[in-house]
């Protein structure tokens, strides 16, 4: 990382949690010009949503 003046804004964001919420935040920021650190405790992203079978009210697969 390059050295910056201490009062400069830093163009990066840390997103804590890799569930559906964290993923969406991270994607929006990365796609709009910010460097993102996504921090997830478990070995895979997806959170509880990955455990769900289908989702209401369309019965789409949660995967």
């Amino acid at each position: 990382m390059t050295k910056r003046e201490s009062n400069d804004l830093i163009g990066s964001v840390m997103v804590v949690g890799g569930g559906i919420t964290g993923l969406q935040s991270a994607l929006d920021l990365a796609e709009s010009g910010y460097y993102v650190y996504l921090v997830e405790k478990s070995p895979a992203v997806g959170g509880v949503m990955a455990q769900l079978d289908k989702t209401f009210p369309t019965n789409d697969c949660a995967m």
């Binding site: 935040s25 920021l29 010009g33 989702t55």
Partner: peptide
């Protein structure tokens, strides 16, 4: 529910991006 989570996720990204707007693209 999930869509509300997704909306909040994007809203938080928006709040973050707005507060850091001058530094957009700095580290990309």
């Amino acid at each position: 529910d999930i869509p509300q989570c997704v909306m909040e996720a994007s809203a938080a990204a928006c709040a973050s991006a707005t507060s850091l707007a001058p530094s957009r693209g700095q580290l990309i």
